[in-house]
Design a protein around this nucleic acid. Structure first.
Lengths: 341, 341
DNA sequence: TTGAAAGCGTTACCAA
DNA sequence: TTGGTAACGCTTTCAA
C-alpha cells in the first residue's frame, strides 16, 4: 500500500514537513529547487495534501450546502447547481446537496437537526420559500445564507431573484395587447409556500384586472388550477379541452406546461398561433425547438452571481448589492399572433 | 459569536469530551439521561460534530469524486448524478464533481495533477471513455474506481453499463422488420474516445449488414454524420432534407436528435409515422410527450447500482457481480409503423 | 457508563 | 528559505 504520509515525503526529499506543506500551499515561500524536489517525491509516493486536515486546521470546512425543493433533475435546479458548482469548485469547495426540502417531514427533519451546522461555510437556498422560523433556525449555523429565487430576502445575507410577478405581468400584457379575448392561465397548484409560482399567478391576475378596469372591460380571463405531480400537463390539457369555449390565448406558468400543451393541443386541432396564442415562462429546453414565445430567465447567470456573492461573504467582504432582482425577458418566437377580427 | 467547541459543551453538560463525542456518534454507549443532557446543551450552544475532524481521525474523507464528460446539465449526467447523490448523501458522503473531463487539456490537467488523490474514498467515471494510461493514473489514488457506461471495464473495480451496441442493433432491427427500405442513421460526430456513441453506430451497422447479407439484400442504409455542438440536430435536419430521396426510416443516436427531427420535419411535410418511421434512444424528457418510439435506458437505476457497489467496495466487501451490463428496452409508441406496400 | 490522553495530517508562528 | 512545534476537533483505547 504505497499511500505515504507527509513525514515520508519529507524524509525522502530531505526536508521538514513544514517545507512539504509549503511546497503545496505556499509555493512562493519555497525555493524553486526545493519545491521541485518535494513535488517530485510527492508524486512518486502518491502523496497529496489532505483536505480534511487542511480544513480542520483552518477552521473552514471547504464545503457549502445547497438546499432545494424537489429534485436536482428539474431544469431550474440543474442549471443553478451547475453554475454554482462551476464557481465554487475551482475555489476549492464541495457542494453538499440537500434535495427534497419540500415535504413537511423533510423540512422539519432538516431544520431541527441542522446537519450542516458547523459543517459548511455557506448555504444556498434554491428557488423555494422557507418560513421565518426556518430562517431563524438556519441562522444558527452562523454562516452566510444566500437565496436564489426566494420570495423574500428577509433573513438572507444575499439574494438574487427573478421578478416573477413582473415577468408574468409582461407575458399576460403581451397577450392582451395582441387583442385576445379569452385568456386562460393553467397552473399546477402551488406547493406549500412555493411562492415563486404564486408570484407568477399574481402577475397574471394583475395584468388582467388592470386591463379589465381600463380599456378592456370585455376581457375574459381565468386561472385554471390543476393538481401538482407528474401529470400536471395532461391535467391542464383535459381541463382546457373541457372548457365551454376554447380560449384564444393561453398564458403558461412555465415552459414545462406550455410545451406539452402546444404539442398535444395540435392533435385536437388547436394550432398555435393559428387558433390561439400561447406563451411560456423560463425558456427551458425545447422551447426554441418548438418555436415557443416565452419569458426567458437565466438561471445560469443567477447561479453564478449567487456563488460570487457567497465567496465574498465567506471572505468576510461586504457586498455592494446584497439583494438583486433581475427581469425576465420576453422572447418573441412563433406561438403568438394578433387576434384576427 | 456563539460557535462553541466540544469542550464548552462538555463543561456545560458536566461531562467529558469523550462523552460528548459518544453522545453523537455512539449513542448506545451513553446513558439515555446523559445523552439527552448533552444533546440539549449542544443544541443550545449550536454545537455539532465537525465532519473534517471526524474524517481526519478516521482516515476516511467522506467524499467521492464523480468525473463526467461535458456538463452535468445533460440529461444522462443529471440523472446519474441525482441518484448517486441520493445513495451517497444519506451514507454521509459528499460528491466532488469534475465536469468537462473531455478536452485534451482538461484531461491532462486532471490525470496528471490528480487533485483527488488522498481526498476521496471512491471515484465514479460517468459515461465516457478513459484511455489505459489514464486508468493507470487513476489507480494511483488507491480507492475503488466505478464506471458507469464506460466502454471498457478494464481497470475498473466495478462497472455498470448499458449495452449500447445491442440496443441500437435492436432499434435498427425493428425498423428493418417493419419493412423499411431506406434507413438513415443521423449522428453527431463522436467526441474523442466517446465510444458509448460509437457502440451505438456499430449496432446500427451490424443490424443493417446482417439484413443485407440475409433476406434484405435490397436494404439501403447510411450513416449521416454531422458535427458535434449545439446545432447538431439542425445540421442533421438539413442533411436529411438535402438527401436525393427522403428516407422511410430514421434510426437516431439519441432522443435529443430524434425529438427535434420529429418536430421540425413536420414543418417540411414529413410526418411520422405516416411518411416515415423514426426511433430514438434514451427515453429522455418529452419522448413520451411527442409519442416517440425509443430504446429506454434507465440512468437512475444504473446510478443507484453504481453507488451501492461503491459503498460496498469502500467497506472492503467483495462484490458478487462487479461488472454488469443491462439491456436497453424497446418502448413502442407512435412514431413507427410498417411500411405500406 | 464515563474520563484521560494519544494521535489523525495539516498550518503557522517563531527561530535559525 | 527552512525547521521545530503547538494546535485544530475529533475518536478510541485503556482504565476507573
Amino acid at each position: 500500500m504505497p499511500k505515504s504520509d507527509i513525514y515520508e515525503v519529507a524524509r525522502e526529499a530531505g526536508v521538514s514537513i513544514s517545507t512539504v506543506s509549503r511546497a503545496f500551499t505556499r509555493p512562493e515561500l519555497v525555493s524553486a529547487k526545493t519545491r521541485a524536489k518535494v513535488l517530485d517525491v510527492a508524486d512518486r509516493l502518491d502523496f497529496n495534501i489532505s483536505r480534511s486536515a487542511t480544513a480542520l486546521k483552518s477552521g473552514r470546512t471547504n464545503r457549502v450546502a445547497m438546499l432545494m425543493n424537489e429534485e436536482i433533475t428539474s431544469w431550474f435546479n440543474t442549471q443553478t447547481f451547475a453554475c454554482i458548482e462551476s464557481v465554487m469548485h475551482p475555489a476549492g469547495y464541495d457542494i453538499s446537496l440537500f434535495q427534497h426540502i419540500d415535504t413537511e417531514a423533510n423540512r422539519h427533519e432538516f431544520f431541527s437537526n441542522l446537519p450542516i451546522r458547523r459543517n459548511v461555510d455557506a448555504v444556498f437556498v434554491a428557488s423555494f420559500a422557507i418560513d421565518p422560523h426556518e430562517v431563524e433556525q438556519l441562522k444558527r449555523i452562523h454562516v452566510p445564507i444566500i437565496g436564489i429565487n426566494t420570495p423574500s430576502s428577509e433573513g438572507f445575507d444575499a439574494t438574487i431573484s427573478i421578478d416573477d410577478e413582473q415577468g408574468m405581468f409582461t407575458a399576460a400584457q403581451h397577450l392582451i395587447n395582441l387583442g385576445h379575448q379569452r385568456i386562460v392561465y393553467p397552473c399546477s397548484e402551488a406547493a406549500m409556500l412555493d411562492s415563486s409560482i404564486d408570484a407568477r399567478a399574481r402577475g397574471f391576475i394583475r395584468a388582467c384586472e388592470n386591463a379589465q378596469q381600463g380599456k378592456r372591460p370585455d376581457l375574459d380571463w381565468q386561472v385554471l388550477s390543476v393538481p401538482r405531480g407528474p401529470e400536471f400537463a395532461d391535467s391542464a390539457l383535459s381541463a382546457l379541452l373541457a372548457l365551454p369555449e376554447f380560449p384564444d390565448a393561453i398564458c403558461c406558468q412555465m415552459d414545462m406546461m406550455a410545451i406539452p400543451l402546444v404539442l398535444k393541443l395540435g392533435r385536437y386541432g388547436h394550432r398555435a398561433p393559428r387558433d390561439y396564442s400561447i406563451i411560456g415562462f423560463d425558456d427551458s429546453p425545447y422551447a426554441d425547438t418548438i418555436n415557443l414565445t416565452t419569458m426567458r430567465q437565466d438561471p445560469y447567470a443567477m447561479g453564478r452571481a449567487a456563488a460570487v456573492k457567497a465567496l465574498k461573504l465567506i471572505e468576510g467582504k461586504p457586498l455592494e448589492t446584497p439583494h438583486e432582482v433581475v427581469e425576465a425577458q420576453l422572447v418573441l418566437r412563433g406561438t403568438d399572433a394578433p387576434r384576427d377580427e
